[in-house]
Design a binder for these strands. Structure first.
Length: 559
RNA sequence: UGGGGCGUGGCCAAGCGGCUAAGGCGCGGGACUUUGGAUCCCGUAUUCGGAGGUUCGAAUCCUCCCGCCCCAACCA
């Protein structure tokens, strides 16, 4: 990043840890964990959580575990486990040997459940899901106790053992904690600890037919691992009393749960349900569609892990639910790419230019700097010849006010090549300009204006030397900043979120570019070779993000 | 008619009773420029959801009010 480490913004979680360290609550150790459920792909919001979990641990010389909260076999799969591991690693975080699964603790969890039953703190309930919902009460009315609430400890022990043995069908019984059906906090109204699910688990196979609920698994898993700070998002705030209750009943190591506001990004939706819908209904091409803000999507789009980490740190950590402007993510990206991406010339929508006074058959070699931000990146040679392609947008007849590019009679600099002057155009039957005719100033080699005032510089490629490519231009998937606010979020999908440009022409040095490699196409933006669809003989580039475009603003202002 | 949280500029966000309310993004203006990129300047809240109160002094403490978010899966 920058030479001097950016000053870290204040952070209430850090303050809490500092207090713990001062009071000696955890003996000065800091152990955190990132606990994804393997039921989907990670998105940019997870990057913030990962950054906080791993960041706090690193800052205090502790460690962060990667633990899968795999307690619901019907929704989870190995595919998701694999993608999550791959993604967190790609982001640049390392959990060392501390890779865990809640399913590793099933036996211990079962033993602890038996312990709670023996203490009269848990019971087997025969209520159906619907009945249980009815008994639970509402937000404003207390619930009622289940008729099965006061079974004997012996009966509960027996029933629970038989639940595990598979004697009962799915949904017929649950194990519940005996807490308080009248609590204002609904999580405390005798929460379910175990449900029967005769489903194969991606790790434990058929070993179990009862599975622990999140609340029963999570805190205890934290405890087993010696976690000190269990950092999670705001929606778990009213689960904290339950988190604490279980741990207190068991009398085991008791981590501190701390909640922060999850990340919301403008022009996106973070709901897992909606994300799944986008993918399953084919509204996008997959979890890694470059328009997606999943980490897999951002990665394929060309985002760097560094930029994402920088963004995650810079958005801050607080408790107010806010929506961060996606322009900030893009800013962090440009900042990183500007420093690192080599420059190349690529013409997306070619317009033929003939340099009338450049000898036919002659090929010049123009020296082009690879990265003005990084002298060590060196330079390259780009071929120049009589027939070139320039961007259609770089020629206008007549030229609008303040247009610095090419137009009849105007002079412009061809980047790293020569100053040229437009002498005329050729049009087709419909009046469309098909060829621009120019003359060049041989003394301006390299682009030296030699005292003249040449305001415009445009990029170009030599027609016969250039290579073809498909270029995919992306825009926000949603056309409004807050799709969640729309009556129907699917109606605000941006119809122009993907534009495929097939006839692009690239400078020849781009031939053989590796999949995933990133470049700045001068004056246009940052692009990367698509990791999925590109092939040496058929290059496909993704536009990662455009350059800031002051000209576009001027035009917009001019109406 | 419950419980838990949150309200600082267009968007994030510091601030934790006392110098003129940090910083970033965005936006506007200027300088510079062989990317209308980058970089560099300058500007952008007399005020902290509102109203009272405490105090020599409040965004920071108290009271009331207003607004927003989360919770009634055998999901996490």
């Amino acid at each position: 990043m920058s030479d001097e480490p950016r000053e870290k913004p204040g952070n209430f979680i850090r303050d809490i840890i500092l207090e713990h360290n001062a009071s000696g609550r955890f003996g000065g150790t800091v152990i955190t964990r990132f606990p994804p459920e393997p039921n989907g792909y990670l998105h940019i919001g997870h990057a913030k959580a990962i950054s906080i979990d791993f960041g706090m641990a690193r800052e205090f010389g502790g460690r962060c575990h990667l633990r899968f909260d795999d307690t619901n076999p019907t929704k989870e799969s190995q595919e998701y486990v694999d993608s999550i591991i791959d993604t967190v690693r790609w982001l640049g975080f390392d959990w060392g040997k501390h890779l865990y699964y809640a399913s590793d603790y099933f036996e211990q969890l079962y033993a602890w459940a038996v312990q709670l039953i023996e203490a009269g703190k848990a019971y087997v309930d025969d209520l159906t899901a619907d009945e249980m919902s009815e008994y639970r009460g509402t937000l404003t009315e207390p619930g009622r106790e289940s008729p099965y609430r006061n079974r004997s400890i012996e009966a509960n022990l027996d029933l629970f053992r038989r639940m595990r043995a598979g004697e009962f069908e799915d949904g017929t019984r649950t194990l519940r904690a005996k807490i308080d059906m009248a609590s204002g906090n609904i999580n405390l109204r005798d929460p379910v600890m175990y449900r029967i699910r005769k489903a194969a688990h991606h790790r434990t196979g058929d070993a179990w037919c009862i599975y622990p609920m999140y609340d029963w698994a999570h805190g205890q898993s934290d405890s087993i691992e010696g976690v000190t700070h269990s950092i999670c998002t705001l929606e778990y705030e009213d689960h904290r009393p339950l988190y604490d209750w279980y741990l207190d009943q068991l009398g085991v190591h008791h981590p501190q749960q701390i909640e922060f506001a999850r990340l919301n990004l403008s022009h996106t939706i973070m709901s897992k349900r909606k994300l799944v819908e986008l993918v399953q209904q084919g509204l996008v091409s997959g979890w890694d569609d470059p328009r997606m803000w999943t980490l897999a999507g951002l990665r394929r789009r060309g985002y760097t892990p560094e930029a994402i980490r920088d963004f995650a740190e810079r958005v801050g950590t607080a408790k107010a639910a806010k929506v961060v402007d996606i322009a900030f993510l893009e800013h962090c990206l440009r900042e990183d790419l500007n420093r690192r991406a080599d420059r190349r010339m690529a013409v997306l929508r070619p317009l033929k230019v003939v340099i009338e006074n450049y000898p036919e058959g002659q090929v010049g070699e123009m020296e082009a700097v690879n990265n003005p931000e990084d002298p060590a990146a060196g330079s390259r040679k780009v071929p120049f010849s009589r027939v070139l392609y320039i961007e259609q947008d770089d020629f206008r007849d007549p030229a609008p006010p303040k247009y610095f590019r090419l137009s009849p009679g105007a002079e412009v600099r061809l980047r790293y090549a020569y100053i040229v002057k437009c002498t005329g155009v050729e049009r087709d039957a419909s009046g469309q300009v098909v060829t621009v005719r120019c003359t060049y100033d041989a003394d301006s080699r390299g682009g030296d204006s030699r005292g003249r005032k040449v305001k415009g510089t445009i990029h170009w490629v030599s027609a016969s030397h250039s290579i073809p490519a498909e270029v995919r231009l992306y825009d926000h998937l949603f056309s409004v900043p807050k799709p969640d606010d729309a009556d129907d979020w699917k109606t605000v999908l941006n119809p122009r979120s993907l534009e495929v440009v097939r006839g692009a022409r690239l400078e020849p040095t781009l031939a053989g570019a590796d999949r995933g490699s990133r470049f700045q196409f001068e004056r246009q933006g940052y692009f990367c070779v698509d990791a999925r669809d590109s092939a040496p003989a058929r290059l496909v580039f993704n536009r990662t993000v455009g350059l800031r475009d002051t000209w576009a603003k001027i035009q917009k202002g001019a109406g």
